[in-house]
Computed example of a mutant assay.
Amino acid sequence: MVRLSNKLIGTLNLAILLLSLPVLGGGIYLKAGAATECEKFLEAPLIALGVFLFVVSLAGFIGACYRNSCLLWLYLVVMFLLILFLFCFTAFAFFVTNKGAGRAVSNRGFKEYRLGDFSRWLQKRVEDSKNWRRIRSCLDQRKACKIMEQKNETWAQFVGHDLSPIQSGCCKPPTACNFTFVNATTWVKPAGFHSGDIPADCDAWENDRSTLCYDCESCKAGVLAQIKRDWKKIAAVNVVLLVFLLLVYSVGCCAFRNHRDEYRYPRFKRARYP
Rank of each mutant, 00 (worst) to 15 (best):
Q157E: 13
V78Q: 02
Q141V: 10
C88H: 01
A64M: 03
V105S: 04
S20H: 06
D128W: 14
G25S: 04
C145V: 08
K189H: 04
K99R: 15
D203W: 00
A48W: 00
L46A: 09
K228G: 11
T154P: 07
S250V: 13
P190T: 01
L212N: 03
L241Q: 03
V105Q: 10
L42I: 02
L81D: 06
R142F: 14
A101F: 09
R114D: 09
Y113E: 07
D203A: 12
T180M: 06
L81R: 05
L8R: 06
I62Q: 00
R120A: 12
C216H: 05
A101H: 14
L8I: 15
R229V: 10
H194G: 00
N107E: 10
C65M: 11
P173E: 01
I9R: 03
K7V: 15
I9L: 15
S210Q: 14
R133W: 09
W231T: 13
G27L: 00
R229A: 12
C138M: 13
P174E: 02
D215S: 10
A156D: 14
C177H: 02
E217P: 04
Q150F: 05
G116H: 09
C202V: 03
R136H: 12
V78H: 01
S164W: 05
R120N: 11
F92Q: 08
S218V: 06
G27H: 01
A271Q: 12
R120Q: 13
G102V: 10
F181T: 04
A255V: 10
Q157Y: 03
Y273L: 10
E37G: 06
L82R: 00
D197T: 15
K228H: 14
Q226I: 08
K220I: 12
T186K: 11
G60D: 01
K124R: 15
A176I: 05
G63D: 02
T97E: 01
A32Y: 02
C88K: 03
